[in-house]
């Protein structure tokens, strides 16, 4: 959201309802959410509303959050794992203003976490809700553009096409090269696109204690994974699902087994790998953990790059 985009609604906001949306719209969205929870992984159509931000800025997630947020909630918003990007800051400010809720960057303190791309490294707890901003909810879309047909495939559980996609991946790359929007099967029934999170986070969806809600604004779809639900990443027997591995720990906090972003240090090719989850990194440093860059050792940024995510 640009400064202009936030200024315009600010003047008009006085006349808006709590959390911007009117109560009738919120009820409609809650009904879609409840249906989504009742049928894990199933895409529920809903009447997506215009929000004071462009599509692609998380209008689906914002509507879901607006429908579930209450005055006592504590909101955290992340974009690529970071609390301080323009998108995250704008959405947090939007709800601070329209709902007057408390906001936080600390994962354990939040009751609602709205996210684009990442699931926090700190395991989520019962009572927390993770709200995903989704650009393209239909996992079958890439090979079957007809909506009538993809609906039928979901209804009849005809998911051979998903494996066609993975087959193509292996034929072309020698392995499953899909790293984002990696398809999962939810509770043994619906195939779902966790888009656009990295597959690194797929295992965190499985049997999570938190409620996970997905909102796609432009595509007008809501879907859900209730707590304690099986979420299994699709694969082949001879090419099993694997998450990304990073060869070095975080250069700042020394964390291992976390998702790292590549950061360019200078124009001479110097770079480092740091936690994509900024809160996780900061709290580890506060606890005294030190990575190579903050320790005595010099930094050599020669680790293979993780994955480049598509611009959403």
């Amino acid at each position: 959201m640009t400064a202009q985009a936030t200024d315009a609604p600010q003047q008009a906001l006085a006349s808006y309802n709590f959390a911007y949306l009117d109560e009738q719209t919120k009820r409609m969205i809650r009904r879609a959410i409840l249906k989504g929870i009742a049928i894990p992984g199933y895409q529920v159509p809903f009447a997506s509303r215009e929000m004071p931000m462009p599509y692609g800025w998380g209008t689906g997630g914002v509507q879901v959050t607006a429908a579930i947020i209450g005055p006592d909630d504590v909101l955290k918003v992340i974009d690529q794992g970071a609390d301080d990007t323009t998108n995250a800051v704008s959405i947090r400010a939007f709800f601070a203003k329209t709902a007057g809720v408390a906001t936080t960057t600390a994962t354990p303190d939040a009751t609602i976490i709205q996210t684009r791309h990442r699931i926090p490294e700190t395991p989520l707890k019962a009572g927390q809700v993770l709200v995903y901003q989704v650009p393209i909810p239909e996992p079958l879309r890439f090979l079957e553009p007809r909506e009538t047909e993809t609906r039928k495939m979901h209804a009849l559980e005809e998911y051979g096409l998903m494996h066609v996609k993975l087959y193509e991946d292996i034929a072309r790359n020698g392995r499953i090269a899909t790293t984002y929007a990696y398809p999962v099967k939810v509770e043994g029934r619906y195939v779902m696109d966790p888009s656009p999170t990295p597959k690194f986070d797929n295992p965190k969806m499985h049997q999570s204690e938190a409620l996970q809600l997905f909102g796609a604004g432009r595509e007008k779809r809501i879907y859900a994974i209730p707590p304690h639900t099986d979420v299994v990443s699709l694969d082949f027997e001879d090419h099993p699902f694997e998450i990304q591995h990073f060869e070095e720990p975080c250069a700042l906090c020394g964390a291992e087994q976390v998702y790292l972003d590549e950061v360019v240090l200078d124009d001479k090719g110097g770079r480092m790998f740091v936690c994509s989850d900024t809160h996780h990194c900061e709290s580890r440093r506060a606890e005294g953990h030190r990575g190579a860059l903050l320790g005595d050792e010099p930094v050599f940024g020669t680790t293979p790059v993780g994955d480049k995510e598509p611009a959403i």
Binding site: E158, G160, L161, H163, V164, Y167, I170, D235, F236, E237, D238, H239
Partner: peptide, 13 residues
């Protein structure tokens, strides 16, 4: 291979 995958074959090789 599509029909094989559609009937549940999950071995790429």
């Amino acid at each position: 291979g599509e029909r094989l995958m559609a009937v549940g074959n999950r071995h790429y090789g």
